[in-house]
Design a protein around this nucleic acid. Structure first.
Lengths: 146, 146
DNA sequence: CTTGACCTTACAGTATAGGGCAAGGTGTAG
DNA sequence: CTACACCTTGCCCTATACTGTAAGGTCAAG
């Protein structure tokens, strides 16, 4: 199977598959006489695994770790379970931040409805946006591939 | 006021302030005889405005738009209000995605507790991570500066 | 023999918000 | 005169997961 067919079957792209190989997520495949990558059937499962992992918020780096366990002859289940715990906590943190941000935004929308633009002081650009608003955490973070 | 003092007063850095200027968020300040940036008191409010905007999830690009209204002699309130609406919707979407992801992760943690690593088939790397899991949206996105 | 689809590598660019470092000028204190 | 703090510009680097483009090789069909 050439790279294009693998990409097609997995809903991926040839670029992505070469990238996964470069990142150590896919083993370097055999080559045809002409130098083309020649994949076996198991490649399909590997690429699907990568996509499934990305869908639940794993980075390629994390998936590489998981795959490394397999390549060392170990079951990656325990490591995956640990990653799941960590991810869940991460998501909880993000959720809390987002809920807080949502409240702040709602408060500002209410303010916007009551303040008169004519009273907006030029020096501070806009009176809708003021310091000391209750959002100090900065980002939401990428949980699943960007 | 030199750039270091402005940075200190606003809790920013000289790099960041020069960056804001390069991005059109701060007007090019006067210069001393020696070529140093020489800020007036209003610069303080501008930088604080930028930080406040970032804290509620505005990108520098969005803040530049807001500032542009002021620089064109208009009140930016209406535009800010529109941005707030948009941001709030964005956050709602992220929240929904994250909640869904959180559920999926919880389901996988439960599965991990019941599956035996000895049954994990090497071909698919790990039986904890399977396709068709109910998370299709990909990223959480940055809402506030990273 | 040529066309076209497919493949190869390598380099650059995307978005965001700066940080790090180099090489050098300025200004004040001792 | 020298040390030292501060300033200048300019260029590259960070993370993530690729995509785009260039320049060229392979292979089957017509």
């Amino acid at each position: 199977m050439l790279i294009g067919e693998l990409a097609c079957q997995t809903g991926s792209t040839t670029k992505a598959i070469r990238f996964y190989e470069a990142q150590g997520l896919l083993p370097p495949p055999a080559r045809t006489a002409g130098g083309y990558r020649d994949y076996g059937e198991d490649a399909n499962a590997r690429v699907s695994f990568i996509h499934a992992g990305q869908a639940i918020g794993f980075t390629l780096g994390e998936l590489r770790e998981v795959i490394a366990f397999r390549d060392h002859g170990q079951t990656p289940c325990a490591h995956v379970a640990a990653l799941l715990e960590h991810k869940a906590k991460e998501v909880d943190v993000r959720l809390a931040e987002l809920v807080e941000l949502r409240k702040t935004l709602q408060g500002l929308r209410d303010r916007a409805a009551h303040l008169d633009p004519a009273d907006c002081p030029p020096a501070s650009v806009c009176h809708l946006i003021l310091p000391n608003l209750p959002v100090q955490k900065h980002n939401i973070g990428r949980i699943v591939n960007g």
